[in-house]
Amino acid sequence: MNKQNDLLKIPESQIDAIQNIVRPLKYSSSSNLFYAGQIPIVAYLLLDGLVHFTKNGKVVNTFSRGNVIGLKELMNNQPVDVDAQIQPGTKVCFIDRSTVLNILEQKVPSTLNKVINKLIRIDSTIR
């Protein structure tokens, strides 16, 4: 596992905070979250299981619990250069653009606001 993935990890307390806003969902089968060249349509907070980033069919990175992927790309209309494949049994929270904008527009910034503000500056595809 890539050590730089820790930069995309959020603290346990903030995982709970996000779960209070968006309902977690479980994927029963493998599926593509996004393709290379596309902007992710939502960001994903991993609660359980794995998401693989692949390039030309090869796994280039793997994410696990606490990782938030696709946030910077979603908010900056920035395409990713990898495919993201979610593994069967993986539990995720979908964080859509409206939810992020609501968090960022808070008049009194919460810890979650600060965490999101930090994550928005980090590429999901760092290797």
Binding site: L25, Y27, S28, S29, S31, N32, Y35, G37, Q38, I39, P40, I41, V42, L74, N77, F94, D96, R97, S98, L101
Partner: peptide, 24 residues
């Protein structure tokens, strides 16, 4: 415009798959 995400899908790429969760 502020809330939408615009993407180009190549021939054969899926937008969503039967059984997945809808979020928009």
């Amino acid at each position: 415009d502020k809330h939408k995400v615009i993407n180009k899908y190549k021939k054969g790429q899926t937008l969503f798959v039967q059984g997945n969760h809808p979020f928009g």
